[in-house]
């Protein structure tokens, strides 16, 4: 387990990233640069998710095999979503 300090730092970063996401919307970036902004917002969400999984769920300290278990679920989700969406594009 990491120290309380690390957890606090992560928490601050998470809050900041969330605020950034909302701020991007408020500043109206979506109006002009929809797809670029979408990319940025999703990357931010992914970063937050990785921080929570890596530190709060301490995947960093677990054997890699645990990460693979979770990744298997993630890949299944991606296969379904990508396959279904691709079929109607």
């Amino acid at each position: 387990m990491a120290s309380t300090k690390t957890y606090t730092a992560i928490f601050v970063v998470l809050m900041a990233l969330s605020t950034t996401q909302a701020a991007v919307e408020w500043l109206g970036f979506l109006e002009d640069y929809y797809w670029e902004t979408l990319g940025v917002i999703m990357v931010l969400s992914t970063m937050k998710a990785l921080a929570v999984a890596g530190y709060y769920m301490h995947l960093r300290d677990e054997p890699r095999s645990i990460t693979y278990v979770a990744m298997a679920g993630l890949i299944g989700f991606l296969a379904l979503t990508a396959g279904a969406s691709y079929s109607i594009i």
């Binding site: 278990v69 979770a70 298997a72 679920g73 993630l74 299944g76 989700f77 991606l78 379904l80 979503t81």
Partner: peptide, 8 residues
Amino acid sequence: ASDIIVFG
């Protein structure tokens, strides 16, 4: 992992 698929 299975719940990831449910939400997924």
